[in-house]
Design a protein around this nucleic acid. Structure first.
Lengths: 292, 292
DNA sequence: AGATAGTATCTAAAAAATAGATGGTACGGG
DNA sequence: CCCGTACCATCTATTTTTTAGATACTATCT
């Protein structure tokens, strides 16, 4: 089977001829001789074994087959542009893909707009965002499976990771509206321990400082925890923004507690590997998320 | 801004070098001199302004940037193959796109497998299927907005369209299980006329021979009619296959009627314009649908 | 009919792709 | 450790392709 023998230049010539309406006009536009365009189109017709233009009139007009080829050509050249763009961002920013591991607890209203800005600033960058929970974020960054992590600060520090403070997430203790806990007023840890807790937990089994009850279900997403709380499975600790809708709908109640510090504000951090090369993209993301 | 200056040949060279593991092996595989491959890669590196290979070792190895470019190149060359494929089918079958207007009433179990076979036989053909109702099918074919129509035969004949008999669709009269009509035994048109009818109707407002009741809602899809019947809006006439699930679930009841002929078997036809050029694709579709 | 704008094709010149030869480097096996 | 093998870059000469310019012919408008 014969290979594709057409060239991108031929396709570019085709599109310009179509746009300008004639071989001569296209040649003038390109600053080339008319015969060049004539040859390009002729060769393309030979390569594709298709007549693209009807030349019987004064101006060449596309045949139906020609129109179909023009559509395909536009698409192909767009892909070629994309390849160039990827190459350019590779050359400028040393990177073609950025993997972000973001704990949903560490997200706030600034994250999504920042991602939009990222897509606009680096239009050919490929971005991958995943949402691990708690320590899984740091693990992904440590193992190089993510370039940057957004995580809530756990009790331990990261000796091996670089980090920058981002902000704080307000946490609330919630439970289904009809639950017995709602009638007990201000609660202490002893009271909470008597009821089933729904704990947001990563894949790393650990003794969480947040586990207050021996009766404990574990889920891997804050949204899952909220849904279980709504269903009445038990009480849980989640970011205020995740519980907002449920509270507004009257399905969830906030419990007032007299818990020890740390206050129910959880600091969130941006983390990355010390040995990571800070290229243009990394620098942009770090600056953006820390400053906005 | 500088344009893309790389060529498809350079990308092909890149992929073959990667596949064969060295410039020399790639050159042998292509029956060319090694210097040719060397130049192709060098020029590509210049055009993209990126180092693709690390040549320090005995065998060249891709740089990380090179790997990203290889991915893009594979994709782009695949698109180029597709363009060739489209061109070839254009040249062989005179057509790049086939529009099928199929009344859902005329469909049966043979249609979808035939479409699968179509996609396999003409892999680069672009297919568009829409589901107009009743006379709208013939209208689309007449106006050239569809190449082929699948329609149920209405009382009138198509003087201006070519057609082939396909088969017959069994029709049933259905109503919600709790509806008053279910208690009346065998029905005549007078009885039906007393209750609201849900009529499947095209955009052409017409006096349908199926309209038996003056109380009549019109919907443009058999599935819409089935849903309305389930909801208890009224009785309706639809193909047996469309009512099957609802009947099995006990939500719909079939009414026994003593209606005039035509029997509740509705012939379905394949239609196309007399003046349509019967190319390879048209011929294949017509033969396939009529014979299977 | 004449002026104008268009395309195909021919010829010659410029540019690019290719082959072949040569020198230098990495790597593995005696 | 050294030698044979396999590799790549680069140089030169040659072939092929692309391009420009000139010319002949056709369509269209006035």
């Amino acid at each position: 089977m014969e290979q594709n023998r057409f060239t991108l230049d031929q396709l570019r010539a085709l599109l310009i001829v179509v746009e300008k309406g004639s071989f001569s006009a296209a040649a003038r536009h390109l600053g080339k001789a008319q015969s060049v365009l004539s040859h390009h189109i002729q060769n393309l017709e030979i390569d594709l074994d298709i007549i693209l233009f009807d030349r019987s009139g004064r101006y060449p007009t596309l045949t139906p087959a020609g129109e179909a080829v023009v559509e395909q050509a536009k698409f192909l050249l767009q892909q070629a542009d994309h390849l160039s763009g990827v190459a350019k961002s590779l050359q400028e920013y040393q990177r073609e893909k950025l993997v972000i591991a973001a704990d949903e607890m560490a997200l706030d209203g600034r994250f999504d707009p920042s991602m939009l800005a990222l897509s606009q600033t680096f239009p050919h960058l490929s971005v991958e965002i995943c949402h691990p929970v708690l320590k899984d974020v740091a693990t992904m960054v440590r193992e190089g499976r993510a370039d940057i992590g957004l995580t809530v600060q756990m009790s331990d520090v990261y000796d091996d990771l670089a980090f920058a403070r981002l902000g704080a997430t307000k946490m609330v203790v919630i439970v289904e509206t009809g639950h017995a806990l709602t009638e007990l007023g201000t609660l202490d840890t002893i009271a909470l321990a008597r009821y089933r807790q729904v704990l947001v937990s990563g894949t790393i089994q650990e003794n969480s400082p947040w586990q207050l009850s021996p009766l404990c279900w574990r889920v891997s997403s804050i949204w899952g925890a909220v849904e279980l709380a709504k269903a009445g499975v038990g009480w849980t600790i989640v970011p205020a923004f995740a519980a907002k809708d449920g509270i507004a709908q009257g399905k969830l109640a906030v419990l007032t507690t007299k818990l020890d510090p740390p206050e129910w504000e959880l600091p969130s951090d941006l983390i990355w590997r010390h040995d990571a090369r800070i290229d243009g993209v990394m620098e942009w993301v770090i600056n953006r998320l820390c400053s906005v």
